[in-house]
């Protein structure tokens, strides 16, 4: 049995060097050379300033913007440094109260919409950083945003379409609208000012 000590120590050391040092170093080197943008967080630049990432959502609650999904991160929503879901179960009164409150807020902000509220607008995502809303949730907000910005609804819908990602190969995933990208293109579009 004593014969096992040397191979054990030496192999643990060597495998640590191989899989804990050489392997991540190799991946980093190749990633930085070939996929520089993605490997560093797919950061969106506007006028030389970093304004966000393609993949990390931001909180929006102003009338001139499309709203993101609710987020369960603390202490503020969409805290990029501390991802979190709510982990509330479907029968938890705390969750039902939260959803009820969100439905009321959404309804009050969209008095002309008579349809039921799309589920993603009133439920928190798994990460608290979900960058997307559903096309249904975007459509729900078209009237409010068009009105606040003095844009036509057709123009707003065109911008939504330009920031909608369909299913990969027509099969994988779900169609989704990138909220940050959409709001940035609204800001570029202009319309009346606040």
């Amino acid at each position: 049995m004593n014969a096992h000590f040397r191979p054990c120590l030496v192999l643990l050391t060597l495998l640590t060097l191989l899989t804990g040092v050489a392997y991540p170093a190799l991946i980093t080197a190749v990633a930085q050379a070939v996929f520089h943008h993605q490997a560093n967080g797919s950061v969106i630049m506007r006028e030389g300033k970093a304004v966000g990432s393609d993949f990390i959502g931001q909180a929006f609650d102003g009338p001139r913007y499309f709203w993101s999904r609710p987020s369960a991160t603390g202490p503020t929503s969409y805290n990029g440094a501390a991802s979190s879901g709510s982990n509330l179960g479907p029968t938890n009164p705390a969750l039902l109260d939260a959803i009820k409150g969100r439905v009321e807020v959404i309804r009050a902000a969209h008095p002309n919409e008579t349809k039921s509220v799309p589920v993603d607008l009133v439920t928190a995502s798994a990460s608290g950083l979900d960058p997307h809303i559903s096309p249904a949730a975007a459509e729900y907000q078209v009237g409010r945003v068009a009105n606040a910005r003095g844009l036509s609804e057709e123009r707003v819908r065109e911008l939504i379409a330009g920031n909608t990602e369909g299913r990969t190969f027509g099969a994988l995933g779900e169609p989704c609208v990138n909220v940050l990208r959409l709001n940035l293109s609204l800001d570029t579009e202009g319309g009346n000012q606040e």
């Binding site: 509330l88 509220v117 979900d130 249904a136 779900e174 169609p175």
Partner: peptide, 24 residues
């Protein structure tokens, strides 16, 4: 409560608490 959870071309619907939109 007036929440739309029906699957359609516009949304995956269902129980979306704790789920990411791109995965549905």
């Amino acid at each position: 409560m007036g929440v739309d959870e029906v699957a359609s071309d516009m949304q995956s619907g269902g129980n979306m608490e704790g789920k990411e939109l791109r995965f549905g």
